[in-house]
Design a protein around this nucleic acid. Structure first.
Lengths: 339, 339
DNA sequence: TTGTACGCGTTATCAA
DNA sequence: TTGATAACGCGTACAA
């Protein structure tokens, strides 16, 4: 009733265990007749290899981990899907681990320091390499530095930390945010509120891009902290540019709703917008090319694992996939500021 | 630059590798002085145990898997959270694997037969046991039977397959559905549409419970297939009882909206209702006790793994945690059928 | 084409 | 309290 091992098959077939090992894995250095017989027997008595033993002996798990904060957003699903697909292409299996303390993990635990647990486990021989989407707004260099020191191949996806030397795959954020700003102006914005900036390198790049474009267009703008004082100077039609609907636009909206609703509004965000543009007339969305990003990240990781030479630069920027514009279906009869 | 092994520490400390092994794990059969010294060195040179080797030698991974279709619904998150917590209580780590082909997996793959892959991997020595929430409406007995034959401890959670002998933790569905029906009648329903039934044991239990309660109340009712003919006989106020908002109520609604909207509506569902009751006046929700279910399932699994005697019955039914009733905030001026 | 023998990193069983 | 040695199940040079 115990599990079937190579040994059992070897005894039944009257061959050596190493022959069985080869036959099972389809190694061609074994006579077709013996191979067939062995495979048949193996199938019949329900042999399944012990992955632990196989990986320990082979020194590789053919497994990579994708570690990300959560699966809340649609982009997360896209990252996961494409990464997993790409891993399979190279005959690797992708595991997903979530590290958001508000959420739970594939390696779940209710301690607040869940992230450490996952990373620790990752370097304990359970995986060959790691693709990480780091936490926004927190500096993980210490933790991740340890991974690097343990020689566990590591690639950043989307967001990243400056101090490490591992490859980074991210969006061409400067250009994307600039285009977002330009489109807002083209849609009639008389002033811009830039919510980007400060959180992390990605957010900072977006701020730079948006600011440059706005300055070039000669349109008045301000950052969030200046809104109470400078909102009036932005004119009747205000575009609000932020990284995401849920984490930047909506909080901003609830905080400043009283003043904002006297203006015509345009929102500019990354990734996606759920539901109607309301209270804006229009939403402009910069859709990141998650599929391509994930594929590239996985490819780089596997190259690292297999010690293939990487001819590309460390920082790889993928252009945004497309810009979507959505106009309100329902016209809301709101007064427009005329000051 | 290679990874530190027990061997390295042994050489440095001038003791045997087995002593190091004991010291690292806090075994008390080692002199405190030696233990401290060893642990100090280990810490210093960054030793981390190789989990593969440890598990192979120990014959256990202290790991269990929770395999479920997806994380779409809120209940899924609750299951995961509580299961993970309970696993940690017993010093196990919980891994989550998703097997819905429309979704992706923790063990991700884009083949349609993802589920097999996950289950296959599970029996390959990577985990000590499995809690499974099976797919609705599909018979997995063949696949899962194989798991049972491989002697991998297995517990069903929520939904289940009759043919296997493993423990099942589910909701007291008969009673819950009956109470749902009773509350619908108490809320003024003159007739009931029962959407439960046919999909799986859970759904079937709910059908039985709802039907019994409705018959006892002497209120006319019908199943989905009879709606076109019998809707009129249900009177002006119709309660629609189904397992979930997204997978039973909404499809039903879109299919029969023309006729339905001439009635006053009440919805009865399990788990949760998102948004307004509209187009119903009222929604009654039977909230399953996911936390308790998950905890109990994990406990049973661990007992199975550790071969503790199970004194409980095979089928464990947890009562619903609570019933919520939500009335429409906005009164929709819809005509009510009077025939 | 097949078998021998060793290694993977750790735990566990004996003796000492 | 320690150390030698055998597992754990499999992969793989090397030899035959």
């Amino acid at each position: 009733m115990a599990r079937v091992r190579l040994n059992d098959i070897a005894r039944i077939c009257g061959v050596d265990i190493s022959t069985v090992s080869r036959a099972i894995r389809g190694d061609n250095r074994v006579k077709p007749a013996t191979r067939d017989k062995i495979q048949q027997i193996a199938e019949k008595i329900g042999y399944l290899p012990n992955l632990l033993a196989r990986n320990l002996a082979g020194g590789t798990t053919r497994t990579i981990w994708l570690i990300l904060p959560s699966l809340d957003a649609n982009v997360d699903h896209r990252f996961v899907r494409s990464a997993s697909h790409q891993a399979n292409e190279s005959d690797y299996t992708l595991f997903v681990a979530l590290h958001d303390s508000d959420s739970f993990g594939a390696l779940a635990s209710n301690t607040s320091e869940h992230y450490e647990l996952i990373l620790e486990r990752a370097v304990q021989g359970t995986t060959d390499g790691v693709v990480i989407i780091p936490r926004r707004g927190r500096d993980d260099s210490k933790l991740l530095g340890q991974i690097e020191r343990m020689n566990l191949p590591l690639v950043f996806l989307d967001n990243y930390t400056e101090s490490l030397q591992c490859p980074i795959v991210t969006t061409e954020n400067v250009d994307a945010a600039a285009e977002l700003a330009r489109r807002a102006v083209a849609s009639g914005a008389t002033g811009i509120v830039i919510l980007f900036g400060g959180l992390n390198p990605v957010d900072e790049a977006r701020r730079a891009g948006a600011q440059r474009a706005v300055e070039e267009a000669g349109v008045p703008f301000c950052f969030e902290r200046d809104v109470p004082r400078q909102l009036r100077s932005l004119g009747p039609s205000v575009a609000v540019l932020g990284s995401s609907q849920s984490s930047s636009i909506l909080p901003f909206l609830t905080k400043h709703s009283a003043k904002l609703l006297r203006h015509r509004l345009i929102f500019g965000v990354f990734d996606d917008w759920i539901g109607e543009p309301s209270p804006a007339d229009k939403v402009i969305v910069a859709v990141q090319d998650c599929d391509r990003m994930a594929r590239e990240a996985v490819d780089r990781l596997i190259a690292l694992i297999e010690r293939r030479k990487q001819r590309n630069r460390r920082l790889r920027k993928i252009p945004v996939r497309e810009f979507r514009e959505q106009t309100a279906m329902v016209a809301y009869g709101r007064p427009v500021a005329t000051d």
